[in-house]
Design a protein around this nucleic acid. Sequence first.
DNA 1: GTCATGGTTCGATCATGGGCGAAGCATGGG
DNA 2: CCCATGCTTCGCCCATGATCGAACCATGAC
Lengths: 237, 237
Amino acid sequence: MTEGPDISRTAALIGDPARAGMLAALMRGQALTVSELAAEAGIGLPTASAHLARLEGGGLIAPRRQGRHKYFELASDDVAALLEALMRFSGGAAPTRLPGPRDPALRQARVCYNHLAGERGVQLYDSLVARGFLQAAGEGLRLTEDGAGFIAGFGIDMAALHAARPPLCRECLDWSARRSHLGGRLGRAFLLAIEAKDWARRSPGSRVIAFTPEGARRFALAFPATRADDLSRIARG
Amino acid sequence: MTEGPDISRTAALIGDPARAGMLAALMRGQALTVSELAAEAGIGLPTASAHLARLEGGGLIAPRRQGRHKYFELASDDVAALLEALMRFSGGAAPTRLPGPRDPALRQARVCYNHLAGERGVQLYDSLVARGFLQAAGEGLRLTEDGAGFIAGFGIDMAALHAARPPLCRECLDWSARRSHLGGRLGRAFLLAIEAKDWARRSPGSRVIAFTPEGARRFALAFPATRADDLSRIARG
DNA sequence: GTCATGGTTCGATCATGGGCGAAGCATGGG
DNA sequence: CCCATGCTTCGCCCATGATCGAACCATGAC
């Protein structure tokens, strides 16, 4: 009897249609919540939860907790390579589609819980980090002294922020861009401040956050983009 | 619901421990019989037969009938690549061990059914093909007119050979070298003729065919090796 | 022809595990 | 504090399929 690595265990994990559907969905690159994955596989929440636990146990996917959501993503590139080999063999060409935008407006700016997400959310986060207002501290984020000064100047009441327990600022995974943006109470405070300044307002029926032309201009000035060329442009200007 | 290629079907096929064991055994590169694969997986013949039928149906392995044996081998390099990706992920490095020789004497010359197999069997087959005595004809082999002359000169009675039905000459898969050698009634006739010439004799208790030094010399002359350099040496000499 | 051997098919048994509903935690919002 | 939401756990039902023994077919040896 040939005693190789436990090939069958991994294969059996992928061998279930529901789990395979979830993995195929994760091949798009986005991290997805348990509910989304359940819908993707066409099964109920309890079943999906059990499946995901097994996939995680097998090292195929990795969880990422976020408030009351639990995102899953492929555990490593090895997993993606394995799935792609499977897809290539199983007839169809591997989809390999990237995290697609759907509604441009949603992609640009939308509400996530109660803070700003989408491209503008990513921009805000990047800008704060690049200017040293936020620092990654282990798992969480830390507001620096410079940062405290900045948000005070932006019209956010620091005292009220420090009152309650929930995490002050939290890295939040962006749904369309799949990059971090600012969540937590500070993220919420920013969104409220932006609305208070009339730069933007939430569209009632949807999650879209509509910026006014003037608001967009001021936002761009307040949170300069941090791509290399933009930074140098800022430095020059 | 993402409708990709049917990834789960293939994965489920590999996902059974018995089937995975068989596939791992086939990764060594040898074609194996149903019985060998059953032993490899530690299951009974009926179960193995059913498993192999499913693997074949899934395009993972391909059969190769040979008398009352049925050899299976991996269907394509894609399958090997897929299995290797699985092994790499599942912890251990891929074994990738090559077809191992066990007993050197067995490997060199042995009886297979009732004809000559092993390195000398492969040499005989290659030599006959290289000199145009045998030709591949679709699934089987065909003896050319030159070939008929050759075997008559070797002391084989053609008339007796043509009497009965079983295939005159048959490509037979070598067990250790995994290359073709000559089986069928013609292969048997060659072995009998070699024994009649006292070049070699079968060892009673085993499958080894022991060549005498003189027999080995004459055999080498009668069936010149066909590696490129040997062929050119023959052409020159 | 008969016999032996390698594979297959059939029928029955039984364990694994996928599925969901209901109830239980945990987290965030107010 | 209470409520809403997202996820997990529990208990149960049920289908798939892995397994083997026995009988059956096919091939080769003699």
